[in-house]
Each structure stands twice: as C-alpha cells, then as structure tokens.
C-alpha cells in the first residue's frame, strides 16, 4: 500500500492573520505550521501503513520554509518527501496548485493520494478534487473512515445527517475530514529520524509545469476586494424555567446541529 500525502504549510491558526493590502496575499512571516487538517491525513496514512505495510511519501508545494511542515509529517511516520518549490509558483490559485501537485504525482507510484479536507488559510477544499480530475482518478472527499478490504477501498463519507458508505477500486484520491482520527504528536526519536529521511526538491522546470497555469499571473481567479468579518451577533439566551434542556434541544435541531 503506497500512499502519497499532500501537505501544506499554513499560518499558525492561533496567530493574528493579516493580508498584504496591495497583493491581498496572506502575510506568512508569522509562525507557520503544518495545516492542522493535513495532520489527519498524515495520521490516517501512518495507520494504513501500520496495518498494510508500504511506503508513505509526503508531497508539498510551497516556499522552502515549508520544509518544516514536511519534516513534521516525516516525524509522524512518513518515509520520504517530495518538495515542489519555485518562486514562479508563488500566488498560484487552486488550479495552479493542483496542476503542480498532479505533475509531481505522475511519476510516483501510489495506491492512495490523501489530502486533508481543506487548508485552514484559504479554506476552499478544491485542490483534492482538481488533482483527481487532472489525474483522471476517482475522488472520495470528507471521509471519516477509511478501510482497505480485499484490495479495494471501503470508506465513509461524512454528511450533515450521518455518513454514506462507498466502495472504490485503487488507485484513488481521498480527502479526510477533521476528527477521522486523533493525530499523534511527533515523538522525539521520530523528529531525529526525520532528519535522515530523503527529501527530493523539484522546481517548475523539473516537472515541466505550464507557465500560463501557475503563479499569480496564471491564476484564473483574482481577488477584487476584501473586508473584515462582521462582528458576531449575540448568542441565543435560554432562560431555564424547567424546560431549558428542551429549548436547547429544539434550537440544536432547528440548526441541524444534532
């Protein structure tokens, strides 16, 4: 079972985020971390490897500093890494990113390509689907259970009401939902071992990326304006007159939260 996990480095979810007022790009000079949603994908890959053997490759497109996020995935148990980095890729939109990842995936032999459901910064969730389309592979997204049975995938896809069970042949592209597992912390020995694991670095030329599809100039989307979110409306207040629990349940049902 060979697995590729695609990971991204993002601005720390706890850091204050700022947009550059001219380019509208996110200021990434603050603390950066492995995209928390990708941690679920890495953990799922490590669990699948523990159960079925094989090799895990981490694939990351990003600036050189993103190597720290890749090393975290290696410390969690991945075996090797491919880093796609090139100044020409800066500012790529989801289509450009998917193009770069798909080209990097082509020479890799894999049964599964795993993604987190989205990145915490852009939150589009489009890249896994775009990569699957470019590679002409099946996509199963938002999974909260992944199993291999008789050489095929048996998965649960999370929905608002419950889940839908799917079966699917390999190879396939999957994205996993938050909470599918509990990602492990890297152990200290895992961190030291990560240093010795192979990391291959590729640029746009090495992958023969199409210049018109990548970077800010190749982006098919353009940010026209941004605004700060509205301050949140005050919450609903429930006075308990013996029927508090009922009122709360009604509210939760109405909002489809239970």
């Amino acid at each position: 079972m060979n697995i590729v996990v695609c990971v991204k480095q993002v601005v720390d979810t706890e850091a204050e985020k700022r947009l550059d007022p001219t380019s509208w790009r996110l200021d990434r000079t603050v603390e950066n971390i492995l995209n928390p949603y990708d941690e679920y994908a890495v953990e799922e890959a490590v669990r699948l490897k523990e159960a079925h053997g094989g090799e895990i490759t981490v694939l990351c497109m990003g600036p050189e500093e993103a190597a720290a996020a890749v090393r975290k995935a290696l410390a969690m148990g991945a075996d090797r890494a491919v880093m796609v980095t090139d100044p020409a890729l800066a500012g790529s939109d989801t289509q450009g990113t998917a193009h770069a990842l798909a080209e990097a995936l082509k020479p890799l032999e894999f049964d599964i390509t795993l993604f987190g459901i989205m990145s915490t910064d852009a939150q589009t969730g489009q890249v896994p689907a775009a990569v699957a389309a470019l590679l002409d592979l099946p996509l199963l997204s938002a999974l909260n259970k992944v199993e291999i049975r008789d050489g095929a995938l048996s998965v649960h896809r999370q929905t608002d009401q419950g889940y839908v069970a799917y079966e699917c042949p390999l190879p396939a592209v999957l994205s996993v939902a938050k909470g599918i597992n509990e990602p492990r912390y890297p152990s200290l020995k895992g961190i030291m071992a990560a240093k010795k694991k192979p990391m291959e670095v590729k640029d746009a030329a090495a992958l023969s990326l199409v210049p018109g599809r990548i970077g800010g100039s190749g982006a098919k989307t353009r940010v026209l304006a941004t605004s700060n979110p509205q301050p949140r409306a005050p919450g609903v207040r429930v006075e308990d007159q013996g029927d508090g629990a009922e009122k709360i349940l009604d509210f939760l049902l109405k909002e489809k939260l239970v």
Binding site: A68, R71, K72, A75, Y185, P186, S187, L188, I191, M192, A194, K195
Partner: peptide, 18 residues
C-alpha cells in the same frame, strides 16, 4: 538546530494538549 526547534514545538503541543 532545526531538530531542536521541532522538538521545542512538539513538546509545546504535547504539553498544551495533554
């Protein structure tokens, strides 16, 4: 070193989380 920085981060996350 990079590893010591990664260790610092891992310890911080472990301590905060657990």
């Amino acid at each position: 070193s990079d590893e010591q920085q990664a260790i610092a981060k891992a310890v911080r996350d472990l301590m905060e989380g657990e």
